[in-house]
Simulated scan of single mutants.
Amino acid sequence: MTDDHTLWLTRRRALAAGGAAGALALGGAGLAWAQEDDEDDEDDENGNGGGARTYRVTVANLTPGQPFTPPAVALHRPSAEVFSVGEPANEAVQQLAENGNLDPLLALIGETNAIRTATVGGSPLVPAGDPGETDLPYYTSLELSADASATHLTFLSMLVATNDGIVGLDTVELPTAVNASETHYANGYDVGTEENTELYEDLVPPAQSLILGGDPDGGTTESNPDLATDDVIRPHPGVSGDGDLDPAVYGWEEPAALVQVERIE
Score class of each variant (00 low, 15 high):
residue 4 D to N: 15
residue 5 H to L: 07
residue 6 T to K: 06
residue 6 T to F: 06
residue 10 T to S: 15
residue 12 R to G: 10
residue 14 A to F: 01
residue 14 A to I: 00
residue 16 A to P: 04
residue 17 A to I: 01
residue 18 G to F: 01
residue 19 G to N: 06
residue 19 G to C: 01
residue 21 A to C: 10
residue 21 A to R: 11
residue 22 G to A: 14
residue 23 A to V: 02
residue 23 A to I: 00
residue 24 L to M: 13
residue 25 A to G: 15
residue 25 A to S: 15
residue 26 L to P: 00
residue 28 G to N: 11
residue 30 G to M: 09
residue 33 W to Y: 09
residue 35 Q to W: 11
residue 37 D to F: 04
residue 37 D to I: 01
residue 38 D to L: 05
residue 39 E to L: 09
residue 39 E to G: 00
residue 39 E to A: 03
residue 42 E to D: 14
residue 44 D to Q: 10
residue 44 D to P: 08
residue 45 E to A: 11
residue 47 G to W: 09
residue 47 G to I: 02
residue 47 G to Y: 14
residue 48 N to Q: 15
residue 48 N to E: 15
residue 48 N to V: 06
residue 51 G to E: 12
residue 52 A to N: 04
residue 53 R to S: 06
residue 54 T to R: 10
residue 54 T to H: 09
residue 54 T to I: 04
residue 55 Y to L: 09
residue 57 V to P: 08
residue 58 T to W: 03
residue 58 T to Y: 04
residue 58 T to K: 02
residue 58 T to E: 10
residue 60 A to Q: 07
residue 61 N to K: 12
residue 61 N to G: 14
residue 61 N to E: 13
residue 63 T to Y: 05
residue 63 T to C: 07
residue 64 P to T: 00
residue 64 P to W: 00
residue 65 G to I: 00
residue 66 Q to L: 07
residue 67 P to K: 11
residue 67 P to R: 08
residue 68 F to S: 14
residue 68 F to T: 13
residue 69 T to F: 05
residue 70 P to S: 03
residue 71 P to Q: 07
residue 72 A to I: 03
residue 73 V to M: 10
residue 76 H to G: 05
residue 76 H to N: 04
residue 78 P to W: 06
residue 78 P to L: 03
residue 81 E to G: 02
residue 86 G to Y: 14
residue 86 G to L: 14
residue 86 G to F: 15
residue 87 E to M: 13
residue 87 E to V: 10
residue 87 E to K: 13
residue 88 P to F: 08
residue 89 A to G: 08
residue 89 A to S: 13
residue 90 N to A: 13
residue 90 N to V: 08
residue 91 E to D: 14
residue 94 Q to N: 13
residue 95 Q to W: 12
residue 96 L to I: 08
residue 97 A to M: 04
residue 97 A to D: 05
residue 98 E to H: 05
residue 100 G to E: 06
residue 100 G to Q: 03
residue 100 G to H: 08
residue 101 N to Y: 11
residue 101 N to G: 03
residue 105 L to S: 00
residue 106 L to H: 07
residue 107 A to I: 10
residue 110 G to T: 09
residue 110 G to P: 12
residue 115 I to N: 13
residue 118 A to H: 10
residue 118 A to E: 12
residue 119 T to G: 15
residue 120 V to S: 08
residue 120 V to R: 11
residue 122 G to V: 01
residue 122 G to F: 01
residue 122 G to Q: 03
residue 124 P to M: 06
residue 125 L to V: 06
residue 125 L to D: 09
